[in-house]
Simulated scan of single mutants.
Amino acid sequence: MKIGSNCFSDKTFKSIVDSLHNVGTCEITKSENQNVYDSNTNEELLPYLEQILDLFTPVSSMKHIQGVEKYSASLYNILGKWNMFSVPSSDIETILKAICHAKLDENPQIFTENVIISGFLNEKYMNQSAILKKYSWKEFCEDIKYHNRFHSSEVNVEQLSELLRFLNIEIPSNKLSLYRARICDATHYDIGYTNDKDIGAPPENVATAGRINSEGIPCLYLADSDITTFHEVRARVYDHVTLGEFKNIMPINIIDLCNLDSITPFQYEDVELTWFAINIEAIKQIAKEISKPMRRFDKDIDYVPTQYIADYIKNLGYDGIKYKSTINEGGINYAIFDPGKFKCVAKKHINIKNIHFKAENFI
């Protein structure tokens, strides 16, 4: 079977297929003039996929063990959440069976039954290796909001620290230009805010709770562009806005969460597949929750789980967090723990002329 590189979203897989320089028609997507992987003659993807398949055990051989159903699902549904493929689960099945035909003969149950990764059933292993130990993100949120606000026993901080090590980016002084906007009140409507302090982080006595910072702890929220920051402050037509450009005046270390929702098993070196498998849901949830916009009906307590994660990142000595804007598609936000590491270098007084809405059915 000829499988086009467009069937894969994993960069490692795509680069392998592209490096073969076999141009043809993908039998999965019917796309022509694609770099294709021929499962009858090529073997380059086989070691990677066999490594993954070796993680799984058919549920029929473990039904006597308590908790099996909680963590089991079809092989294709599980792998569909691992960001390796860009095609539906039915096509993932076709691809795996075509490439891994030896495994299909050797262990056909993993292709036909629900499967499980046995590490989920090993409480000792989960407590040692899973970021949220044996708990789900929902269970962690319930615990930290209503039971153990400051010292949750459901987080494995050593494993969280290990994840953060892969996400750190170092930025030299004066290499990062970011933006922050403030909607002008009646007093400043015609002149804008002229004092740098008025468009910087709020002082301690007025700093309200956000997804990253707790009440009373200032945090400098910045964005990659003027458009992103206009969206973030919910600017409306005829609002006057002061836009500040900020630059880092010293080297900083930022934790980049932007691509956590699309992380793949082979993205980072030295990451074990089992570790990836038991942590992928928690990793995605952390990125999703931190990126989620603040809603008018949110309560301060709703921000406690992400504040806990951010506070731990800060405690490790990192300077801030980079995350996706869900309000402006393609936009990037930054939360800087120490506002003093950035300086406002320019200001503009702007009149918002129009805005664009995009709507979709909720269900």
Rank of each mutant, 00 (worst) to 15 (best):
D302L: 07
E106T: 15
V59T: 03
L220M: 00
S61K: 14
K353Q: 15
Y238S: 14
N253M: 04
N315L: 10
S262M: 14
P172Y: 03
R149Q: 12
N333I: 02
L260T: 06
G244L: 08
F140K: 05
D256K: 01
N315T: 12
F111Y: 08
Y268V: 10
A130S: 12
L176K: 05
L243Q: 07
T57F: 03
G67I: 08
D198P: 04
S39D: 07
R296A: 15
F246R: 05
K70I: 10
I280E: 02
S19C: 03
K145P: 05
I78C: 03
I321L: 07
Y179G: 10
I28T: 09
N328I: 14
N42R: 04
P202S: 06
I28L: 04
I278T: 04
F337I: 06
T57W: 01
P218G: 05
I3S: 02
L178H: 08
H151P: 10
Y268P: 08
D91Q: 13
R149C: 11
E360R: 11
E154S: 13
L104W: 03
H151V: 15
T57P: 01
K292W: 06
G200M: 09
I52T: 00
K134A: 10
F166E: 07
F85C: 04
K11F: 12
K134R: 08
I350S: 03
L79M: 09
I92D: 12
S291H: 01
E93T: 12
D38C: 02
Q66C: 11
N195M: 06
N195I: 13
I171C: 00
I99N: 00
V241L: 03
T194Y: 12
H240Q: 08
Q34P: 07
V68M: 12
S5I: 15
